Amino acid sequence: MASSSHRRSRPERRGGRVPVVTVVAVAAVALVVSLVVAFRPDGGAADGGARAVEPAAGAPVSGSPTASGTTVSPSPKPKPSSASPSATAGATATARATAKGSSGTSGTSGGSSAGSAARAASGTAPQAGRIRPGAAYQGVATSYDIGNGDGACSYGPTSDVMTAAMNTADYETSKACGAYVLVRAGSGTSITVRITNECPAPCEPGQLDLSRQAFAKLAPLSAGRIAITWSLLSPATSDTVSIRYKTGSSQYWCGIQAIGHRNPLARLEVRTGAGWTRLARTGYNYFLSEQGTGCGAAIRLTDIYGERVTVEGIAVRANVTQSTQVQFARH
């Protein structure tokens, strides 16, 4: 408000008639003002009329899409699970690859090189469980006789001796199956092992039960128990993913297993008439379709980084390892 020194003094009220010229002039001004208001571009009063509200610069537009096109809002970035340790921040893209499956009788992966293009390494793993890339875990290593190499992950006998059993907490209902882990001893010596088994209690969180051959590369077997640090790997490999249906599988019930995936597997889905249906994962590392939904149909695999690969042409052939032409990208 202006100060009193800037106010104009109110003129004294004087008697007498108002000149006719003054009345005419006031009426003319009022008419001009009315015409200006009536012909405003927004068709209404300056304050009281209905007007379209213009959004502020940079503000999102809500409501129905206009004739010029529909604005698609970006999807929110997935957040890591609060129950899991934080991973290094970074963005990853989703890649898709489709391949025809071919039948095979051996228990190892076959086929050509990966169908997915290699991507830049990133610590972001939106679908990871307890074990996350970019994190180092403290624990102890023990050893056991792996026998023929089979274990809780149900991969079957193998000649690969660089394997390990994961403690139950980090095994996480077989989510750790197939994961490659870099293990480092206090001496600085390190090895890479693949998780093929579960180590139940008294194994504690962070503990790895290594094959004797793997343990012997870190310390003498007589040491029994040594302190280690370990972390998740996404290794170089020429193998591709293989698919195996469980013994007893048919079009009415089936269990499906993925073998040879470079990165830990987050989910397995089958194509149905209603779209993709996610199958439940068991502790013995098979995904079950109890009612036969999708048995023999296309299979979609998703790793912990969110990358998807689709496999088609895999028939329901119980206990037969069938190779594909797909593999997840390296991180």
Rank of each mutant, 00 (worst) to 15 (best):
S86V: 02
A87W: 07
T88H: 00
T88R: 09
R96E: 15
A99K: 01
A99C: 14
A99G: 09
G101E: 07
T105E: 09
G107T: 07
G107M: 05
G110R: 10
G111V: 06
G115Q: 01
A117K: 15
A118I: 06
A118R: 13
R119H: 10
R119E: 12
A121K: 04
T124S: 14
P126M: 07
A128P: 05
R130F: 11
I131F: 02
A136H: 07
Q138W: 04
A141G: 06
S143K: 06
I146D: 00
N148I: 02
N148F: 01
G149I: 12
G151Q: 09
C153A: 14
C153Y: 07
S154C: 05
T158C: 05
T158M: 03
V161D: 06
M162N: 12
M162C: 07
A164F: 06
A169G: 02
D170H: 06
Y171F: 08
E172W: 09
A176I: 00
C177A: 12
A179Y: 02
Y180A: 13
V181F: 03
V183E: 04
R184F: 01
S187L: 08
S190C: 07
I191F: 06
R194K: 15
P205L: 09
A216V: 08
K217D: 11
A219N: 09
P220R: 12
G224H: 10
G224V: 15
I226Q: 10
I228C: 02
W230R: 02
S231T: 00
L233F: 11
